[in-house]
């Protein structure tokens, strides 16, 4: 009965038996998906239209009050604008810090390139908590970075428990994603094109500006999309490095869910993050189309 296993285009009777087996094989993963993904997400969407009662209670009424309240509250409007602005800033910083590394890696070859690529990927395998802790140690008031700045004769700025620290930490944490995206996009950058531009008399700067940069735009767009969505939904680094003084969407979701126990509001903020995701994706596909059309 299970011969259909070996039949790419099975006949009608076989197809039904293959389908029967497939249902059995797919049941466990479907169950986990339903319990741990579909049901929670649907519930989250519905929760954003529920009403929060004092003391963590929830009224199962359908109301748009969370949404209208959110969009009328100055605090939350500022939170949204601030989150988007900080995430954009982090994305730009990540791009600037990653581009030279990606370009260098693209031009490197052999074992050296493999070694450097492993170095780029290795932070990805390290917990965000560990890396954030490393930044706390580096940026502390009497920390090594502050000492270096002081040694150069400047007054070291405060870098912890404010947006500066969060931006520095997240920039570093998101760099591997950006570098890998850029390298994927650099695939279409043929070294011969550069050589051609140079032999035609272009200066290095003009070569970069007129030839290299335009060719690598798709990789840049992909990396920026990825880093923006990761930045706006990042939680560990803003929470630990912000010291409760940096308010971003993700930290607010956590505080509303765990501290204030206002689940409908937390759900509404979560849905808002998803909406911003969608908007970022729309911008990305528009940008890609514009690049395609030259």
């Amino acid at each position: 009965m299970t011969t259909a296993t070996f039949d790419l285009a099975a006949d009608v009777p076989k197809r039904s038996s293959a389908a029967g087996i497939a249902v059995v094989l797919l049941l466990p993963i479907a169950l986990v998906n339903a319990i741990g993904f579909i049901l929670p997400v649907l519930n989250l969407a519905r929760m954003s239209f529920n009403e929060a009662l004092p003391g963590g209670g929830i009224a199962e009424t359908l109301t748009a009050a969370n949404w209208t309240g959110l969009l009328q509250d100055r605090f939350y409007l500022d939170l949204i604008v601030n989150s988007v602005a900080v995430s954009l800033g982090i994305t730009l910083a990540t791009l600037l810090a990653s581009y030279p590394i990606a370009l260098y890696l693209h031009r490197a070859s052999g074992a050296w390139r493999t070694f450097l690529t492993v170095l780029v990927i290795s932070p990805l395998l390290t917990s965000a908590v560990v890396r954030t802790y490393g930044w706390i140690a580096l940026l502390a008031e009497q920390g090594p970075v502050a000492n270096v700045i002081a040694a150069m004769g400047f007054q070291p700025p405060r870098m912890m428990f404010n947006t500066t620290g969060v931006v520095i930490g997240l920039t570093e944490i998101l760099m591997p994603y950006m570098i890998l995206s850029l390298m994927a996009g650099f695939g279409r950058l043929d070294p011969k094109v550069e050589e051609a531009a140079r032999t035609l008399g272009a200066t290095p700067f003009r070569t970069f500006w007129r030839v290299i940069l335009p060719l690598t735009l798709p990789g840049i767009a992909l990396g920026c999309l990825l880093c923006f969505v990761l930045a706006i939904s990042s939680f560990i680094t803003p929470k630990l490095m912000g010291g409760g003084r940096v308010f971003l969407l993700a930290t607010e979701i956590y505080d509303q869910a765990i501290v204030t126990l206002n689940w409908p509001l937390a759900a509404t903020l979560s849905m808002l993050v998803l909406i911003i995701f969608g908007a970022a994706l729309a911008v990305y596909s528009r940008v890609l189309r514009m690049i395609d059309q030259g």
Binding site: N43, L44, V229, S233, I253
Partner: peptide, 14 residues
């Protein structure tokens, strides 16, 4: 595809 903060909250509620 979902941010973990959103997924975590969603699972918490269920």
């Amino acid at each position: 595809l979902l941010p973990t903060i959103v997924l975590g909250l969603a699972i918490l509620m269920i």
